[in-house]
Design a protein around this nucleic acid. Structure first.
Lengths: 121, 121, 121, 121
DNA sequence: GTGGTCTAGACCACC
DNA sequence: GTGGTCTAGACCACG
C-alpha cells in the first residue's frame, strides 16, 4: 500500500509504475487500465491523486479516455515513454551518475558488478 | 545569482554545494565557512534560507558552531559526507540506473562510453 | 496565550508539550495531531514556529507526515520520548542534582520530603 | 579547554565554575582570583567573555575589584552563592526533578543509588 | 484543506 | 561581528 517514497509526489510515482508496466509489456497498446477508483483502492490512495496521474498521462499521450469505458493505452505509449526516458537518462541521469561515481572514488567495476547481478536475476 | 534548480529546495542545493566544497578540499577540517549573512549575500538568497542549510549541516555533524564566531568544518565532515553519499548511491541511484537502462534496452557500452568520455576530460 | 518561559525557545516548549501529551496518553500512536495552522492559532504563535516544532519532532521519529493530510503520531513515539528523557535524566539531571545537593549541604531527607509531598497529591 | 556545554552561555558556565570553587573552599574569602587574562588563556576563551563573567559576579557581590590588583573573593561570597542556589534548587530544580522522575516511572531508589554512589567517592 | 519553502525584517544573547 | 529565534505574509505542490 504505502510503499511510496517521501520525496516524490505520489501521483508521479503512480505514473512511474504505470509507465513501467507499459514498457515492460504488462499493459499493451489498446489495453484498458484499471479505473481511477480501482487504482485508488488497490494502492490505498486518495481518488484525486490517481485522477491527477491519469490526467498527466493522457496529456502526455500515453493513455486516452473513452467516455464511459475507461482509460486505454495509446498506440505510441511505449514509444513516447521510452523516448522521453531515454532522453532524460542520457542527458541527466547518466552524466550525473558518472560524475557522482568519480567523486566518490568508485570504479566502473562497481557498475559492472551491479549490472551482472541484475542480469542474473 | 539564481542558478538553482526549480525542483529541489534551495537550502538543500546550498548544502550540496558546501558538501561538494568540503569533499573537494576547498574547505578543510577546522576551516571556518562564511557567515550566514555573507553566504546569503554571496549567493543572493535570504538569510533564513542559509540558516536552514547550516542548521541541517550541523545536525548532520558536518559543521559545528562556535558561539559568536561562526560555523566550522568538523573533523569527520568529509568522511560523513562521502559515507552518506556512497550509501545512498549504492542503495538507490545505482540500482535505479541499471534498472532504467535495462528497461530502455541500453547496453553497458552506453555507460562505459560516458565513463571514458568523462575520464578524458 | 503567551504562557511560555523566556529562557527556552518557544518551538522547543511546544515540542515538550506535545511529547507530554503523547506520553500521558492524550495523543496515541496513529493519532493525527492538529495541523500547523490550527496549532498556531490555538497557542497564539506564528505558523512558522509550529512548523519548526513539527519538523523537529518528525526528524526524531515521534511524528510523521502524510502528504496533504497532516502529522500523525508514530508507533514508537512514546518509547522514543521516554527513552530519550530517561537517558538525559540519568546522565545529566540526576548527577547534577546530587552534586548540587552535596555542595549545598542538603541531605537526602530533603529529596525524600519533596518526593512524599508530591506523592500525596 | 573546550569542555563547555553548547546550550548555556560560556560566561555563565565560567561563573558556575568559580562559584563552585568558592563554595567548595578552593577559593576563600579575601583570596585573589586569577586575572581576566589568565583565566582567558587558561580556559581558551575570549577575554571579553571572562570580563562578562567577572562583571556579573561583582554585581552579585561575590567578587570585588581592587584597582590594579585584581579581583578578590568577598566575605559573604559563599553565603550569597549558597543562599541563591539553595533558593533556586528548592523552588525549581527539586520539584522539577521529582516531577520528571514520576513521569518517567523512576522510583526514589534511583535517586538513593546515585546518592550513595556519589557519597562513596 | 495539508505541509514545505522562501522572503523580509526584527530582536536577542553572545563573543 | 556571530548565530538563534520569531513574526508576518506569501507561493507552491499535493490530497
Amino acid at each position: 500500500m504505502n510503499d511510496f517514497k517521501q520525496d516524490r509526489a505520489i501521483y508521479l510515482q503512480i505514473a512511474d509504475r504505470i509507465c513501467d508496466e507499459i514498457v515492460s509489456g504488462r499493459y499493451n497498446a489498446g489495453d484498458r487500465i484499471p479505473s481511477v477508483r480501482e487504482y485508488a483502492v488497490m494502492i490505498g490512495v486518495n481518488t484525486n491523486t490517481v485522477v491527477r496521474t491519469f490526467d498527466m498521462l493522457s496529456r502526455q499521450g500515453i493513455v486516452h479516455t473513452k467516455r464511459g469505458l475507461g482509460y486505454f493505452v495509446t498506440n505510441d505509449a511505449s514509444e513516447i515513454i521510452i523516448n522521453d526516458r531515454k532522453q532524460r537518462f542520457l542527458n541527466e541521469s547518466l552524466p550525473e551518475t558518472v560524475r557522482q561515481m568519480k567523486l566518490l572514488g568508485l570504479t566502473e567495476e562497481v557498475f559492472l558488478d551491479e549490472w551482472k547481478k541484475e542480469t542474473g536475476k
